[in-house]
Nucleic acid binder design. Structure first.
Lengths: 365, 365
DNA sequence: CCACGAAATGAGAACGTGCTCATTTGAAAA
DNA sequence: TTTTCAAATGAGCACGTTCTCATTTCGTGG
């Protein structure tokens, strides 16, 4: 239309006061106003209207103004579904966790990780689906594929079938806190091995010589890695590894309490002066059992937890804990996932440094 | 095609061994196999193929078998985006939280609520977007509208503009743990007023007469409601409300500890024998301050928390706490939201009963 | 005043599914 | 064999965008 620039704005301004126009707006608002409605109202083609939103610099300022005013007045909101239909990008990510780690969100490790994943994703313009399933197999994971997520973070060891499924569709995947022996999936992990070493070193330097270990019933990968580190660290400092000073418990306070009592009973007069727990929850339970047995923390027995979660501050004294970098882990996972989505080359896996947050349960103020 | 029933299966079986067929599958797998590909391979129309998935009973068993086999072989996966395009249903919900409650996921109240929301939604076949934004205004909320979620749960007091936005699109909304004075939005709440009464009653029945209150700096609605309940409850039991026995703190252990110390200092010899905290985190801090001041819990001072979160078990002694029904709250929110989505009539708001979980911080074993 | 070229706009095809309506099929009844 | 009718299948539009390519507009210089 060759008269747009002249009558376009006039027409629109007059329609603005027009009853018909308002009726149109009103009816459309409830029904969902589309790019076509704006086109009809302004008299431009839908192509031009679409351009006004996607590539404003390709549209004359005058028409841009008209279209934007109309869009604002009518309450236009772009339909991300229709856009995804042709761009093949939904702008959605999936955070999938299942199995023993559940509950997810209240989990002292995965909770903060998820939090940082959501924040990092939002900063990059992505929305996050969260999928949790204790006995998940394919269904929960494949529904995310049906929903066409741009990428997925697995916060658990996914079974190979699942990974194959994702690989066959070409959807980028990042493993979080786990590695895949069979497939070449990029993973973000923390230096668990080094973390345990740090803790043992710290306790040794405080003069502790009689160690106990309370393991959590996590995924095998994590458990084996940490246990091996513990054994190696003891050996490095010339200490003997004693099976009777080890307990494997469910990560609950009551279970850990029982585990600690078992160790105290078994050890008799040689009760440990250092206890390493593979989780802050377990550490909280251990502290309770120790205090109930009349042992002072840290004077008689020092306790170290894992995750450096908020639980540490609830403990009295506060809990020394290994910080596996929950927040950074989430951020890195999102960063890597985005790079995979953007088809960057040479995306490398990440292994985060670990630090020890020293507090009252090992060093008294 | 009138020969389908006869040659259809034969044809398919032969194609199954056909190189061309495999090539087709291979190429398509990476590209995304659609309903049209299955139609081409099997010789049926896309309408029939679509029916085979959506309404299997309308399709002859023989053709059903052919189509399903082809779909399995080719790795067909329905495209939820395309489906949403015409059904106007995405099967997605949004869980939105912002403002003072952040961080969301590690929050001892909202964490478990979110967990139950995700689980309840998944059981009903919905996926959940989680949106968190400390200083959120419209953007984060409106992006969920663009993504065409079927419904939204607001776990914070949304500003009226946001509610208007949602109302104008007709997207169902449920408020969680909040109510809207201005708009007629359905909400799921807990009987906070009754909860505080329960706690005061419990402490009074234990012979406590000198009460202290540590408030958390939450949203005004919650804070005012609970404080009024506290004042009313004291009056009911003939106790005086003393401003000097009240502190308002940020919900962090250290802040709460300081708050408790302030109260102890101000009260001098009349230190309280009962402390009510509006959050388990605050209670944990209060316990620390009390224990540091040499007061035994519960003998000298009884402590009650709020939320009955996992924090209670980390405390020593375990923390008596008001249980606002986090899990049920999430479930109810999802149930109501689904009813709204299904356009059921007479959907009523819910106010959940509250109970007191009595543990070691008020009653010694 | 005309020609030229860049800028602005329009027409229409895709994307993958569901739905409606018309057409064909096949088996039982006549 | 023919008729009948429900069951099975096919053709084609719709959803709301983006994208490509053709067409029109407009300013500029000859």
């Amino acid at each position: 239309m060759f008269l747009h620039s002249i009558i376009g704005s006039l027409l629109f301004l007059r329609w603005n006061e027009n009853v018909l126009f308002y009726n149109y707006c009103f009816l459309k608002r409830l029904y969902g106003v589309t790019i076509l409605d704006i086109a009809k109202i302004t008299g431009f083609s839908k192509a031009t209207v679409a351009r006004a939103f996607a590539n404003p610099e390709q549209v004359r300022p005058a028409t841009l103004e008209i279209i934007r005013t109309a869009a604002r007045t009518m309450g236009y909101r772009p339909n991300a579904i229709a856009r995804a239909m042709i761009t093949k990008r939904t702008g959605n990510l999936a955070f999938i966790i299942y199995g023993k780690q559940a509950p997810v969100i209240t989990n002292p490790f995965y909770g903060p990780v998820l939090e940082s994943v959501v924040n990092a994703a939002q900063r990059k313009g992505y929305s996050v689906f969260i999928v949790s399933d204790e006995e998940m197999r394919l269904p929960s994971g494949s529904i995310m594929l049906e929903k066409q997520v741009d990428g997925t973070i697995f916060a658990s060891q996914p079974d190979p079938e699942m990974l194959n499924l994702y690989k066959s569709t070409g959807t980028p995947v990042v493993l979080l806190n786990h590695v895949s022996e069979t497939d070449d999936v990029i993973s973000v992990t923390a230096d668990d091995y080094g973390g345990v070493f740090l803790a043992v070193e710290h306790l040794y330097s405080l003069g502790r010589r009689s160690f106990a270990l309370i393991e959590g019933n996590f995924t095998e990968y994590i458990r084996n890695l940490r246990k091996q580190a513990y054994i190696d660290a003891l050996k490095k400092f010339g200490l003997v590894y004693d099976e009777r000073m080890v307990e494997l418990v469910e990560p609950h306070v009551a279970d850990a309490e029982l585990g600690m009592r078992n160790i105290l009973e078994r050890s008799g007069n040689n009760s440990p002066d250092a206890v390493l727990c593979m989780n802050d929850i377990i550490a909280a339970g251990a502290m309770k059992a120790l205090q109930a047995a009349g042992r002072r923390i840290p004077q008689d027995t020092a306790v170290v937890g894992y995750d450096d979660s908020s639980i540490c501050t609830y403990c009295n004294p506060e809990l020394t804990s290994i910080d596996g970098g929950k927040e950074r882990m989430g951020e890195e996972a999102v960063r890597i996932l985005c790079e995979l989505i953007e088809k960057k080359e040479n995306v490398e896996p990440v292994c985060l440094d670990v630090r020890l947050s020293i507090k009252g349960s090992t060093v008294s103020k």
